[in-house]
Design a protein around this nucleic acid. Structure first.
Lengths: 232, 232
DNA sequence: TTTGTTAATTATGTACTACATAAGTATATT
DNA sequence: AATATACTTATGTAGTACATAATTAACAAA
């Protein structure tokens, strides 16, 4: 016999383990006491005792802070708070196969949004040297067979990667690199060849002699096939 | 006596612990065997034995995957791979006080870039209802004293938050919420009152009757004071 | 004073054992 | 067939023991 609700919309009881609690308590402790990078943390035994848990559990919690890049430790020297590697943990998780479809779609849109917003910073930071290098990448594409899929993807990555590098924003650059597998995953799934109206070379010329608005319009057209995706 | 180099540019030797290695091995194992969310992982003892480490160490590594939202486990039932909460780990780390200045600046620019790129998706997804709600927020600002800093920040957050919500992109929305403390940190540090040429109400009107380009131009002017920051 | 050697100290890293606990599984009972 | 009971199992937690690297202290030699 069927239940009234096909899918019961109720949250399962949360099974908070000691490690979960200790993790939160440690984060709160660090925040409350305004710990800064370089500051030494209390010893494991002191923390364990203060928290009323075994050293084992404490270390499981500390291990989580380690993967977040928040604490570093060496033998005898003890533990210190470190400036976390923000994107480091993201990179470990960025596997299209285990991320749910909805989130993948979100990140796809996030990438398009970034690409459209880049123009402003790009025009502030662009240099003749960078533009010349970008042009080289765009020119290199023409000498190869357009049906060589692997090469096309490679040069696509190279071109847009260069644009991100031109912003001088290292975080943004890493973010883009991180998003690549997702982008690749979604694009390879669909069959469309996705021919862009505006080529890379067109974009280079807009960057050289056009205005911000013109460049952005070009980028919008270049990404046209991708934007069509989200019009579902 | 002073050394030749004020700061010695050399990387310290990496101290890879067993937990570090096991963490990487687990990630590789999951990837190689194409584990998908819902799949059951081998038992702790089996993994520990296969890896040649104690259950302790294995659990420290597993604890890291847990904080990344990649594995969940219950007693007797065993462990299962879960679809990771991508931004969850980011949120734990997003503390302006422990993130280095350079990264903070990067995220600040990232936020501006997103804001400038939002226009396209916004015009695709906007609804009369959302615009009306956005207008309410903008109108509510006028009745209050402009010198009430707390209120000004609150309404600023509310307005831009609503814009992100209007994209229907939940990840982007969370991302923005996450970036708020950073934004607040950098803005409160500087003394400038930061008066924008284009008000929130202007933006609402552009969203109602203007074109994408006009809206984006308005947003650019609205963010003018912030863009001046990055012209350093 | 500086340099080099040795020994003691200490906090983290790793292993192992033991038991608690929740959640299935099988068995017995009505 | 339904219910109650005992058994089994994999994770959760605690505790002990020892290895190891890094620091300090003490001391000796140049």
């Amino acid at each position: 016999m069927k239940s009234k609700l096909s899918t019961i919309d109720i949250e399962p009881v949360s099974h908070q383990t000691m490690a979960d609690i200790v993790e939160l308590k440690l984060l709160a402790f660090l925040k409350k006491n305004a710990f800064k990078p370089g500051d030494a943390l209390p010893k494991e035994m002191e923390l364990a005792e203060a928290l009323g848990v075994s050293r084992n559990i404490l270390r499981e919690a500390l291990s989580r802070l380690r993967v977040l890049g928040m604490v570093d430790s060496k033998k005898r020297r003890g533990m210190v708070l470190t400036s976390p590697d923000i994107l480091g943990s993201l990179e470990k998780v960025m596997d299209p196969l285990i991320i749910d479809e909805s989130t993948l779609q979100d990140f796809f849109e996030l990438r398009l949004t970034l690409e459209m917003g880049l123009a402003d910073i790009l025009f502030i930071r662009k240099t003749k040297k960078d533009i010349a290098e970008l042009e080289q990448i765009a020119l290199a594409e023409k000498v190869r067979d357009k049906n060589d899929v692997a090469f096309r993807i490679k040069s696509e990555v190279e071109f847009h990667g260069k644009i991100y590098r031109m912003t001088g924003n290292h975080t943004m650059q890493r973010f883009q690199t991180m998003l690549l597998p997702i982008f690749g995953h979604l694009v390879t799934v669909e069959k469309k060849p996705a021919v862009a109206k505006v080529t890379h070379l067109d974009l280079v010329n807009l960057l050289k002699t056009g205005t911000i608005e013109e460049f952005r319009k070009g980028m919008r057209d270049h990404l046209g096939p991708h934007f069509k995706r989200i019009l579902k």
